[in-house]
Amino acid sequence: MLKKTLVALSLGAALFGAGQALAADYAIDKQGQHAFVNFKISHLGYSWLYGTFKDFDGSFSFDEKNPEASQVKVTLNTASVDTNNAERDKHLRSGDFLNVSQHPTATFASTAVKSTGAGTADISGNLTLNGVTKPVVIAASFVGQGDDPWGGYRAGFEGSTTLKLKDFDIQKDLGPASQEVQLIISVEGVRQ
């Protein structure tokens, strides 16, 4: 579930906190495992089921002096869904949910970034999941930025959004408490 691969998403906007004075491009630190696209959905209204997508890639551009010009692009491998239960993950990959055989990727591309306060922003964009493209908004917050121990420069954010399953043609009915999934995104980018 999902999506929001968005992951990536929130990135740029959230970064307007402090630091760089010029526009810069960042690659999501996928190889260092410093980025996560997680989700949670209610299980029958009694508890939360958590999961993650283990394979995604993306980039963002951020200009501290003009955060509204920031951009985010993310691609997610839907078959990389992992809820720590092989049978459930197999079901999530099926046509009942992510339909990974026909839609192996989910994508997010930002269309606008709007500052909502000190170190926070709404990142609007188009999310394509299960063959359906819909506008979504990720509420993002800046985590930090600066030099890393390897001679690079990094910036990070976290963000979240809630998706209605039926909006993305996921028709499996999991009961009234499980119609929406929350995406939680934590991303660290390395300046290129």
Score class of each variant (00 low, 15 high):
E180W: 01
A139W: 02
T52I: 08
L2V: 10
A106Y: 01
N38Y: 08
D25M: 12
A139S: 13
N130A: 02
D147R: 14
T78C: 07
S178I: 01
A112D: 10
D89N: 12
K65V: 09
A69V: 13
K172Q: 14
D25A: 15
D82N: 15
R154Y: 05
G146F: 12
L11G: 14
L174W: 06
G95Q: 13
H103L: 00
E64Q: 15
A140C: 03
L6Q: 05
T75G: 02
Q182Y: 02
K3S: 05
L163V: 06
A69W: 10
G189R: 03
V100Y: 04
F53H: 09
S59W: 03
V74T: 14
L92P: 02
L98Y: 04
D148F: 12
A86P: 13
A13L: 15
S94A: 06
L129K: 02
H91E: 12
L92E: 04
N99T: 06
F39P: 01
L6W: 04
D122L: 05
D63M: 06
F142I: 08
L165F: 06
A118D: 15
G146H: 13
A27C: 01
G131S: 08
K90H: 09
K73T: 12
L92N: 03
S115R: 12
I28W: 03
Q102I: 00
T133W: 05
F142V: 09
K134C: 00
G58C: 02
D147G: 10
S141V: 10
V113D: 05
D57M: 03
D89E: 07
L129Y: 00
E64R: 14
L165N: 08
L6S: 07
N126D: 13
F39K: 01
D167P: 04
F53I: 04
D55Y: 06
E64T: 13
S160N: 09
R93G: 04
K3Y: 03
Q71H: 15
G125Q: 09
L76C: 11
V181R: 00
K54I: 07
L183H: 01
N66E: 11
F39H: 01
M1C: 05
I123L: 09
A69H: 14
S61P: 05
V7Q: 06
V187Y: 01
G119P: 07
G159C: 07
M1Y: 05
F142N: 15
S186A: 13
L129N: 01
